[in-house]
Write a protein that binds this DNA or RNA. Structure first.
Lengths: 114, 114
DNA sequence: CCAATTCGTTACGGTTCTGGAACAGTATAT
DNA sequence: ATATACTGTTCCAGAACCGTAACGAATTGG
C-alpha cells in the first residue's frame, strides 16, 4: 500500500522520462518497455502469443520487439521442446541489470520528489 | 519526501506502461512524453531551443515532436512578439486533461502496488 | 547599412515501427 | 494418412522517427 498523489506521480514520471531521454542508450518504445517488464516481473513461461494477448497487440509487434531487444541483449528466445511451435522468452543477465538500474533510478528520484 | 523501493518502482512502472499500451490512443514516444511533461510541469516560457537544451536533444527533435503533439491537440505554438525569432510552446486544455488522467492513473495503480 | 548571429523549420537519406496478410513448421483429430 | 488448427515469422506498403545540414526570417553589433 503506497500513497502517491497525482501531482507527485507526474513529477516522478517526468524525472524518470528525462533520465531516459538524456542517457546515451537508445530509448525503448513504450511497447518494448511493457514487454520487457512483463517478462521480468510476471511469472514464466512467456510466449509470443501470451505476451500479445496480455498487451492487446498483434503478434508481429511482439516478434519485432523481441528481435530488437534480443540484439540489445535484454531478452533471449528459446524453442519450447515440449511443444516446438512455441517460443519461450527468457531473461538475461544484461536485461536484469538494465531493469535494476531503472528501478534504482526511479526510487532515487522518488525520494527527491516534493 | 517519498519512500519507494526499487521493486515497487518497477511494479508501478510496469502497470503504467501496460495501461498506456492497452488504451486505444497512439503511444507517445519517450521523447514526446518528456517534452509534454516539461511544458506542463516546469514554469514557462518554453522555447524550442530551451527544450532541446534541457532534454539534451537536437532542435529538429523538438520541432517534430511539437508538430505531432500539436496535431493531437496536446500543445500549441505561438510566436514570441517581443522577439519574433522565438516560438513559445503553450499548454492546451486537452493536454492538461491528458496529463491529469495520466497522473490519476499512476496514483491509482500505486495504491494497489504491493 | 551591412555583416554576423540566433532562432525555428525544412530537406535529405536512412532506419524502425505499424497493421494486415500470407507463410512454413508443428501438433492434433479424424 | 489427411485435414484441421495453432504457433511464430516474414512480407508488404505506409507512416513516423532519427541526425546532419542547409535554409529563411529576425535580431544584434560594428
Amino acid at each position: 500500500m503506497l500513497i502517491l498523489k497525482p501531482g507527485q506521480a507526474l513529477n516522478l514520471w517526468h524525472k524518470a522520462m528525462l533520465a531516459q531521454v538524456r542517457d546515451d542508450d537508445p530509448d525503448l518504445t513504450t511497447r518494448q518497455m511493457a514487454i520487457l517488464l512483463t517478462v521480468y516481473l510476471d511469472p514464466p513461461p512467456h510466449t509470443v502469443r501470451g505476451l500479445a494477448a496480455q498487451l492487446e497487440v498483434t503478434k508481429p509487434v511482439i516478434t519485432r520487439a523481441l528481435d530488437t531487444m534480443g540484439i540489445m541483449g535484454l531478452v533471449a528466445r528459446r524453442r519450447d521442446e515440449r511443444d516446438r511451435r512455441n517460443v519461450l522468452v527468457q531473461r538475461t543477465v544484461d536485461g536484469a541489470e538494465y531493469l535494476q538500474r531503472l528501478g534504482d533510478l526511479i526510487a532515487n528520484e522518488a525520494i527527491e520528489t516534493a
